[in-house]
Simulated scan of single mutants.
Amino acid sequence: MPTTDPQDGDPVAKPPQLLDIDARGLRALAHPLRLNLLNSLRESGPATASGLAERLGESSGATSYHLRQLAAYGFVEDDPTLGKGRERWWRAVHVGASFGPEFLYDPDPEVRGAMGNVLQWVASVHAQEVGHWIGTTQDWSRAWFEASDLSDFKVRLTPELSRQLADEIHALINSYRGRVSEETEGSAVVRTHLHMFPRSTS
């Protein structure tokens, strides 16, 4: 099951709580601006519609509208601890989301299309993040460059073994949560992508 788990700057000892999206929520989410708004709130924390508009290069009217739509489907909510007067701050409700494979085989073409749009967006963000890292490696120490990884592997598996491998990788990554506090000198949030897919040999 694909998952999106943006950078969690506050490590915890257990896996983060992910939103299990249903078909209705998936259709509501499958809009590029809504995906970018939700991702920005997860990555950078609470913000106002105008702040997000400036960050994403959009109009505040558009960000305000789509934030209200995200709130209607439970993706974001008001942050009452930050608002002053009429200023409205928004925060993400969950740190990430999971998507069931049934959406790709749903009889409703709108659901299948929404799933495809979300997956394409996720793949695009991953590519952008890798490209940004490569373009900024000189801004980091040699130790961090040597600690990074950009590898690919090829191994013959059955669907069951591929699922088992993915689950074990998820468990391994989650076992590192909570080991390093935010105040630890020299630490950084490490972004890890997992792509697993079959390839034709013909």
Rank of each mutant, 00 (worst) to 15 (best):
G135T: 07
T184E: 15
R34D: 02
Q128F: 03
I169M: 15
L172Q: 10
L26R: 02
V130Y: 11
H94I: 01
E110R: 07
L165R: 09
T3S: 05
P107A: 02
V76W: 01
P159R: 14
I169D: 10
H31L: 09
Y65S: 09
R86Q: 13
F75K: 00
L165S: 10
F145G: 07
V190Y: 07
S202A: 07
G96Y: 04
P107M: 02
R191Q: 10
V93I: 10
R112A: 01
S124M: 11
K154N: 09
R163H: 12
F197G: 14
W121N: 04
D152I: 05
R68I: 12
G61W: 06
T48N: 03
D106E: 02
I173M: 05
P159S: 15
F145V: 11
E129Y: 07
P46S: 15
D78V: 07
F197C: 13
M196F: 08
P6V: 08
R34Y: 03
G74Q: 09
E77P: 01
G83H: 12
D167H: 11
D20K: 10
H193E: 10
L26D: 00
S141Y: 04
V189H: 05
E58M: 12
S50T: 13
K84L: 12
E182N: 06
L67N: 07
G116V: 00
W121H: 09
L194C: 02
R142C: 00
V76Q: 00
V130P: 04
G74R: 11
D149Q: 14
E185M: 08
P159Y: 13
Q164N: 11
S50F: 08
L172V: 10
A166Y: 06
T3N: 03
V125F: 03
Q7P: 04
A71P: 02
V93L: 09
S40L: 11
E43M: 08
G186T: 05
R88M: 10
G113D: 02
R163M: 12
A28K: 10
R86C: 05
D5V: 15
A188P: 04
Y73A: 11
V125Q: 11
H193A: 15
